[in-house]
Computed example of a mutant assay.
Amino acid sequence: MPDERFSYRVPRVHGPRIAVIGGGNGLSTMLRGLKNYTENITAIVTVADDGGGSGMLRQDLGMPPPGDIRNCMEALANTEPLMSELMHYRFSDGSLAGQSFGNLFLAALNGISPSFDVAVSRMSEVLAITGRVLPVTTADVQLEAEFENGATVVGESKIFYCKKEQDCRIRRVRLLPERPQALPEAVQAIHDADMIVLGPGSLYTSIIPNLLVSGIVEAIQAADAMKVYVCNVMTQEGETEGYTVSDHIRALFQHGAPGLFDICLTNSSPIPKGVAERYAQEGAEPIRCDLEECGKLGVEVILRPIATVRDGFVRHDPGHLARELILLHAARGIRIAGTRYSRSDNYQAEEKQ
C-alpha cells in the first residue's frame, strides 16, 4: 500500500539524483529498493576487496575486484529472468569452483576494453541497468588495518582474522598506495547529487575505503545535497564488535572529515529474541543507538523500521529503506531534478510496476 506520508507522484525518470557510496551486500540491497523510486542513481563502489572469486581474478588477471560492482549491477539490472539467473550462476566444480559467471563476464569485458571503468559501463549496457555503477577508482589498491595495540595487516580479507587474533579494536585503515585518484565521473556524480548516501555495509572494509580515495571526501563536503549515513543493523564480527551508532559515526569522521554528514538513518525494528541469541553466539548484537553521543557529534539520528529477518539473518529491507530515504529527501525540501519542494509538499515516487 502507498505510504500515507506520500501524495505527490513523481515519475522515476524525474526522481531525485542519488549518489550512494559503499560496497558489499548492504549497498546492493539498498539499490534494489531505490530503483523503484528513481532512475537517477549512481553507485560508487569500493575496489579494495581481495578475497573470494574477486580476489582470484584480481590476482590472476591484474584487474580490480569485480564482485561488489557486479552485485550492484545485478541489483539495478532490468533483464530477462534467464540472464539474471546466468549472472548469478556459480560454478561448482573444477578450477572455476566458487567463481560466478558475472565476475567472469566482467573480466572478459575488461580484457577487451581500454580500462576497467569502460568495462563496467559496457556490462551496464548489456544488463540495461537503472542508473550507473562506477568504481571509486581504477587504481590497484590494497587495504591496510592498524589495531589499537599497534599491530597491522594488509589485505581486506585478512582483517577479520587479524582482529580476532589481536582482540582489540581497529584504530584506522588506509589504502596502499595512499590517496589514489578518484574516477572523475564519481566525483561529478557526487557534485550533481540531490542526496548522498553512505552505506549500509561493512564499516572498515566497504564504506571507509571510498573515503580514502583522493577527491571523494572533498566532493561530499562541497556538494549541495542532503548527506545521510545508513547505519548497519547489527555489529559485525571481526570488525565492529561492541560498536554503538556513535562509534560508527566517529570512525567515518576520523577517516573522512568531521561533519561529513549530519543525518544518520538507523533501524528501529525489534530483532526477534531467537535471532539475536544466534547472533550473540558469533559475537554480534543489535547496534545500540546512543542518541546523546551522536548529538555531540552534530548528527541527527532518525529511527525508522528498515530491517527485516530473512532466512534467519537480519538484513535491511530494500523497500522500507528506500522508501524512508525518499521520504526523508522529500520532507527536507531537497531539489528533485531541478525542482525544489518545500517541507509542506507531499511527495510520492512512482513505483515500478
Rank of each mutant, 00 (worst) to 15 (best):
P65L: 00
G215F: 06
H329R: 00
A186Q: 02
E351D: 13
G155C: 11
L176N: 09
Q254D: 12
T244M: 15
R304T: 03
T339R: 12
L265H: 03
G102Y: 03
I336T: 07
L127V: 00
S124K: 04
G215M: 06
M123P: 06
D290Y: 03
I271N: 03
F6R: 02
P114F: 01
A182S: 14
R310M: 09
L291N: 09
G67Y: 01
L134K: 04
H329N: 09
M56Y: 13
G295C: 10
V245I: 13
D262V: 01
G150C: 10
S121Q: 07
Y37P: 01
V141Y: 03
D192L: 09
L106P: 12
V10A: 06
I263D: 02
E74W: 06
N103E: 11
A189E: 00
F261Q: 08
I287R: 00
D93F: 12
R9D: 10
G51C: 08
L27D: 01
A276H: 02
S202K: 03
E218V: 10
G53D: 06
S206D: 00
E293K: 11
A139G: 12
V10S: 05
R172N: 13
R278L: 12
F91Y: 14
N267F: 04
D317Y: 01
P200H: 08
F160Y: 12
S202F: 10
G283C: 07
G150D: 10
A107P: 09
V118F: 05
Q181G: 08
I216H: 02
E241N: 11
G298W: 10
N25E: 04
I170P: 04
K296Y: 09
E351A: 13
S268T: 02
V217S: 01
G52Y: 09
